Amino acid sequence: MSVDVRRRPALPAWLLALVFTMFAFSTDDYVIAGVLPAISADLGVSEAAGGQLVTGFSLAFALAAPVASVVFATRSRRGLITWSLAVFVAANWAAAFTTSYAVLMGLRVLAALAAAAVVPAAYAVATSLAPEGRQGRYLALVMGGLTGSLMLGVPIGTWVGGAFGWQATFGLGGLLGLVALVAVRITLPEPPAGPAMPIKERLASLARPQVLLGLLGIVAVVLGSMMLMTYLAPFLRDLAGVGPVELGWVFALAGLAGLAGGQLGGRASDRWGADRALIAGIAGFTVVMGLFTACWFLRPLPLPALLPLLVVWAAVSWWVPPPAQTRLLALAGPAGPQALALNSSAVYVGVSGGGAVGGLVLESRGSGLLPLAAALVELVALALFWAAGRRRA
């Protein structure tokens, strides 16, 4: 009698190297928030000016990612990733020794430009090397480096900065980049080359209405999610009296749930199709926002009673991006790698917009209206993807 034991195929080493690369970039981007007071004090600038180091990184990335994707579309992606990681390592280690705010800002922009060259290439490699039926899953895993950085990298980087000085945080960023560089160089094969397209033709493909609508859908997806994420502290304070200590645990739990949600969203995209997975994720998000709104009328509530809802909220928030990216790839056709670069920029626009729009809602209507406003934005995202599909048809 024989037993048929089916094992899931092991994840390839090159995929894990790309996940770690995303982890290194995201940690380097967000960790400055944890050492901002020390940087500002040592460099003799205000904390508001110090915060512009994050803005400078994000803005440089958002502007450079689509340009780099078009310019380097015909270059070896393995070579592009390794050389860009080398620049990233050098920029971080140089930042550990600077005593000038202007020089530090320039080095942060240089690190962002390196990241802008790598991230779209990493997404393109993941989709081109993914086995049939596992594209969404592989995209979700690469995106998992982001949630992993929020859950693990940023706390560790903040602790290192507190214990050894903010310069050590940049030293750690360079070390993470070096590990990623070695891992990519050892494990990453050269993916198959895509169809050769002149730059004008690639740009024309990206300018098609369905691609633009899909990108706007990505912006709306992230914007709706970040409206509540950015202002979770005042929302939970007003709803359940949550303080800073409890909030730290909430963020850790949300990061873990988000990591799981992203993987489930990628699997659902592969099994059900991107459209159905996207509808399911946005529907789940809308239901959770409705429940948060209902809870507002029952406040104050104990935090333990809200934890299950917070876990589901984090999971469905991260469920949506993998099928949204897969849908964007389908809309872009041969210009998929360049569309993924614009997707990265759209994500940063959504993050910034979530903070801005959420702040307006908070100031004008209070934190209790944030969930309802976020749900409406997510429904707009769904409408944009529907319109994009109609234009493609």
Rank of each mutant, 00 (worst) to 15 (best):
G148F: 02
S128A: 15
G157F: 09
G171C: 00
A163Y: 02
V119G: 01
T147Q: 14
T147K: 05
Y138S: 09
G133S: 10
T169G: 06
L129N: 06
I156Y: 03
S149Q: 08
W159M: 14
A130G: 11
Y138F: 14
I156D: 10
A124G: 13
P155E: 06
A140W: 05
L150E: 09
G157S: 12
L176A: 12
G177C: 12
A163H: 06
R137S: 15
G144R: 05
G153P: 02
G171A: 01
R134P: 14
V125F: 08
I156R: 00
G162H: 07
T169E: 02
Y138Q: 00
P155T: 12
A163S: 13
W159V: 15
A163R: 02
P120I: 08
P120T: 11
V182F: 13
G153D: 10
Q167C: 01
V125Q: 08
W159G: 08
G153E: 07
A124I: 01
G162Y: 00
T147H: 09
G153V: 06
V160T: 02
A122G: 13
S149T: 04
L146P: 01
L178N: 13
W166L: 05
P155D: 08
L176S: 03
V119E: 04
G161R: 02
W166G: 05
V119R: 01
M143N: 13
G148E: 10
G174P: 06
L181W: 14
L150Q: 12
P120V: 12
V179A: 15
V125G: 03
A168W: 09
L181R: 14
G136P: 00
T169P: 04
L178P: 07
A163P: 06
G174M: 05
I156C: 04
L152Y: 00
Y123Q: 14
S128W: 00
A180Y: 08
V182Q: 04
A124V: 03
T169K: 01
T127P: 00
V119D: 04
L176T: 07
A140R: 12
W159R: 14
T147I: 11
G145C: 10
V179L: 15
A121T: 12
V154C: 04
G161D: 05
Y123G: 13
F164H: 10
A126G: 10
G148W: 05
L152P: 00
S128Y: 00
W166Y: 07
W166N: 03
A163G: 01
L146H: 02
I156L: 15
A126V: 08
A124S: 15
G157L: 09
L141M: 15
T169Q: 03
G171Y: 01
A140P: 03
G144C: 09
P131C: 06
A140K: 09
V125N: 05
T169Y: 00
V119F: 10
M151C: 14
L139D: 02
P120S: 13
V154M: 07
A163T: 14
V154P: 00
P155M: 11
T169S: 07
F170C: 07
P131A: 11
Y123N: 14
I156Q: 02
L146D: 05
V142R: 01
R134K: 15
A180R: 11
A121K: 11
A126F: 01
V125Y: 09
G171K: 04
